[in-house]
Design a protein around this nucleic acid. Structure first.
Length: 239
DNA sequence: AATAGCCACAACCGCGATACT
DNA sequence: TAGTATCGCGGTTGTGGCTAT
């Protein structure tokens, strides 16, 4: 009988986050089930995927939802139902989990209250959401999309330009630690941060980079993938 | 200061869809 | 074509922080 390795559950530690970020940045996403083993994580592939998709992946915007985003969610929930991934696809930088949580914790109640109010005053049966024409919707969506896209770029540029991330003469590990905390506080993990982790091998304690590299390369080779240094990713020419 | 209740959100679980062998 | 593996989605739960008492 094959003994199932111990799999950790619950909240992710900073160390685990760093391992996952470092691994995915270096080798890309190739197989969620195999990845944790190579990355030195005692987590299920499912758990790793969730952590990456909902929290660690770059270009995620977290925190307060704008009024526009709220209206968009309410409108889309009304038209699409609880298809959170479809709704998230229309709200760049927001994850389906975030939207779902936001809906369940706040928007749902608000909609119920608004519906009750509108039911009690029949002359105002049309909600502000319903009043939006399809044209207005699409222009609003476009606005959100463009806005969030450029905002993401600006965030990265600001972080990269912020010299406090790399103070000269300071303890590098502390600096990177602060860097990480700050990024988490801002709910943003940029490529800049990820690259800085990779440049500091001591940040990935217990991670046998050489063994991982060999195993991963064997896997990629077996699956007819080759490494594209230009894009820093593995690609399969047959796909 | 202690604690109960509430809230927000991260994470888990189960299941269906899809890909692969 | 069937069986298996993997992925992605939506519902639900667990937990930590905040507030009121």
């Amino acid at each position: 009988m094959v003994r199932q390795p111990y799999l950790k559950k619950g909240s992710w530690s900073r160390d685990e986050d760093q391992k996952l970020i470092a691994y995915i940045t270096r080798y890309g996403i190739w197989n969620w089930n195999e990845m944790p083993r190579f990355a030195g994580l005692q987590r299920s592939g499912k758990s790793c995927r969730l952590r990456w998709v909902n929290y660690l992946r770059p270009n995620i915007r977290r925190g307060n939802f704008s009024r526009e985003e709220e209206e968009t969610i309410i409108h889309l929930q009304k038209t699409l139902g609880n298809r959170w991934s479809a709704i998230a696809a229309r709200l760049p930088q927001r994850t389906d989990n975030d939207i779902k949580n936001y809906w369940n914790s706040r928007l749902k109640k608000r909609v119920i209250v608004e519906n009750n109010n509108s039911a009690s005053s029949p002359t105002e049966t049309k909600s502000s959401v319903e009043e939006n024409s399809s044209d207005a919707d699409s222009s609003m969506m476009l606005g959100i999309f463009l806005d969030s896209d450029t905002r993401g770029m600006h965030d990265f540029a600001e972080i990269a330009a912020d010299t406090t991330f790399f103070p000269s003469g300071s303890d590098l590990s502390v600096a990177v630690d602060d860097h990480y905390s700050m990024a988490m506080d801002n709910y943003l993990v940029s490529y800049w941060e990820i690259l800085s982790f990779l440049e500091q091998p001591q940040m990935i304690e217990g991670l046998d980079c050489e063994a991982i590299s060999q195993n991963s390369q064997q896997w990629h080779s077996h699956h007819q993938q080759y490494y594209d240094p230009l894009h820093d990713f593995w690609v399969n020419p047959l796909i």
